[in-house]
């Protein structure tokens, strides 16, 4: 089945005010930067965004925060973004902070048809407030529910016309789980090849999880913390 759409404009058709979006990536690594640029252009408002981080002030989801498009963020770590902190402390932005492993598993569960699961993470902390606690093997666990989204927007290294995806290195992160959890999943890829080109043994996200795929035109792939060692 051919999932290819012409461009980012076509890929994001149907995204409306008030929707819930999942956006892949960890920090600025593996984020769907072409789609984020288009979301800013569209000016869609009151969005709930599920993403591990919120970008930095002038890149990634930070651009959507600057444009006041986000009503609520569901993340695990938001440390690198001053505008985010300002909006959160002033009450403009609703924020749900979730342990990173629980966030990943909640997305996975959402895509896998598992409505909820028990995890030890967060027991005894404010994350556990209002959540059911059960003891398994002598250890308390809290009930966490699945997450799904109207649109999941992911970024992959290579993809084919069937929507099969391969990620590169640590840019995989949240993308595979989010791809599973979108009612409509959009994949932007650096390289788009005909079906049959990618080795089926090497596919990370099978095409069944992807509804639309396009080749991104611009990948800045910004590095957040450039750390190097001296050449020997």
């Amino acid at each position: 089945m051919n999932k290819v759409v012409k461009n980012v404009e076509e890929a994001l058709v149907g995204i409306q005010d008030g929707m819930t979006l999942m956006l892949g990536g960890f920090g600025l690594c593996g984020i769907p930067e072409n789609s984020i640029g288009q979301l800013v252009k569209l000016g869609t408002k009151n969005l709930t965004c599920i993403s591990n981080n919120a970008g930095v002030d002038d890149f990634g989801i930070g651009l959507m925060l600057q444009a006041k498009q986000v009503k609520k963020m569901i993340s695990s770590y938001v440390g690198e973004n001053d505008e985010f902190e300002r909006q959160m402390l002033s009450g403009e932005l609703e924020v749900d902070l979730i342990p990173q492993g629980s966030l990943a598993e909640r997305c996975r569960a959402g895509g896998a048809g598992i409505p909820a699961f028990f995890t030890p993470a967060g027991y005894g902390t404010e994350v556990a407030e209002g959540k059911e606690v059960r003891v398994f093997n002598g250890k308390p666990h809290i009930l966490e529910s699945a997450l799904t989204a109207d649109f999941a927007i992911v970024k992959a290294w290579k993809g084919d016309t069937e929507g099969n995806l391969i990620y590169k290195a640590a840019a995989r992160n949240f993308n595979p789980m989010m791809a599973m959890a979108g009612k409509i999943t959009v994949a932007e890829v650096e390289e788009l090849v005909p079906a049959g080109t990618l080795d089926p043994n090497q596919i990370h996200t099978p095409g069944i999880f992807v509804q639309r795929i396009f080749k991104g035109t611009a990948f800045e792939k910004r590095i957040e913390q450039r750390t190097v060692r001296k050449n020997a």
């Binding site: 770590y77 402390l89 902070l97 342990p99 030890p120 993470a121 967060g122």
Partner: peptide, 14 residues
Amino acid sequence: MVKGMGGAMDLVAS
């Protein structure tokens, strides 16, 4: 300061 827990809660719980 609210930066979030990242993976710390999962790590210490397990």
